[in-house]
Design a protein around this nucleic acid. Sequence first.
RNA 1: CACCCCGUAGUCUAAAGGUUAGGAUGUCGGUCUUUCACACCGAAGAUGCUGGGUUCAAGUCCCGCCGGGGUGGCCA
Length: 466
Amino acid sequence: MSVITRFAPSPTGFLHIGGARTALFNWLFARHHGGQMLLRIEDTDRARSTEAAVTAIHEGLHWLGLDWQGEPISQFTGADRHAEVARQLLSEGKAYHCYCTPEELTDMRATAKAEGRSMRYDGRWRDRDPADAPKDQAPVIRLKAPQSGETVIQDLVQGEITVQNSEMDDMVLLRADGTPTYMLAVVVDDHDMSVSHIIRGDDHLTNAVRQRQIYDLMEWEVPHFAHIPLIHGADGGKLSKRHGALGVEAYRDMGILPAALRNYLLRLGWSHGDDEIIDTDQATKWFNLEGIGKSPSRFDIPKLENLNSHYIRAMDEAELCGLLAEQLVLTTGRALSDIELARLPLAIAALKERAQTLVELADKAAFLLDGRPLAMEEKAANLVTGDAPGLLAKAHACLGALADWNHDDIAAAVRGLAEAEDLKLGKLAQPLRAALTGRNASPGIFEVLYFLGRQESLDRIGDHMK
RNA sequence: CACCCCGUAGUCUAAAGGUUAGGAUGUCGGUCUUUCACACCGAAGAUGCUGGGUUCAAGUCCCGCCGGGGUGGCCA
């Protein structure tokens, strides 16, 4: 049997970080087994579904590097098919019309709650004579669920889950307006799409038990379930706006690489012994449902950033330069000159060791852009006072005399000057660094001079000589 | 309130019922260096309960308690 998984988000916002992990697991599982992952948009709630959200989900998946087989399926367009199944159950006596009004149901719950009973539908229309049906009230169709015994699902992550049928009420299949509910639609679609493995958040765990009742009454084969634990916020509570970054695009904006986010999300809830750095090829080979833990996890940005720094360093340098250039355009709000662009490949090896995100990379690369006189950070400004201007003048002279502008000659000249002045290298390097970068921290000073080129270096030193 | 699920350092996790409970990240200290970073070395830090039971042996199995989460819609 071929493996078919599906990712089925509701289009009510961006691609949620938890949804992203669910998509990743479905994708990896399908690829591991040479199967396919389908995308189904659960848009049966017309009021809350938007086209913009569908686009955001596509873009989020695309950015994360996850793809799906075939065209995305709109659940809403299958409404007729869903209704057909509801009518079939009705004609077979496995479902029935219920004429309760919303107000009646609200009252029912209120009373039940007041009396300390659970707030379930009491089944008052289950066996009632159809002749009692009010003429002016459109009915819903409810499943005639078993009232005794128990319903069991074998979950590949959670194990065997058993719920007493007395704990469940007769769920609505078709609304009064003839549209299907989620419970009906998922079951029909998963069946019709031949989904073999349903991998989703464990907020659906109890739903799965109810869904099994529909599978059973339709006499359909029940797919394999794998309910994965949810991701919580840093405080252990439900992930919400309070925790900041909820959508994947927020991580893109933070300068996180898709490869790093995939690795982080993979390790959140899934493990393969002590392995931590697992690229996507390796993950595809290793991924299985057995490695998924049952306990919820918390999202931890520092660990994501650590992984991100790893992937930044491991990335092809030309590609990284491209991303750096994009990021610089974003932060400066202007295009880069050819001269500035040419400095990037020179400096990239030194810069990538120092950045955890692309945003940080761009920040550390800022000194490579033209813009004299340089804005001086406070600690840098303090480094070019006192003896510094005189020292910088000497540096300017000996660097200006260099026949060739290369790293070794620059190093020899600067070291030579420090020796001649009887100074430790740091005493000369720090004022130079401040003059050249406007900061007190940067890559090695010889490298900085080399990246900037002779003219720009001498000009910047000149700005602080006097 | 009912039902279902979960509980190993701050965080993510490893440990066929059997070494001194391992790794990662974070934190702190050190080495290196020209600053920062990288790298390397080192340290502190955990089985929710001074719970009950099974066993020669429990993080692991059973029960209780406590804590967290999910579900309980004509939302998905």
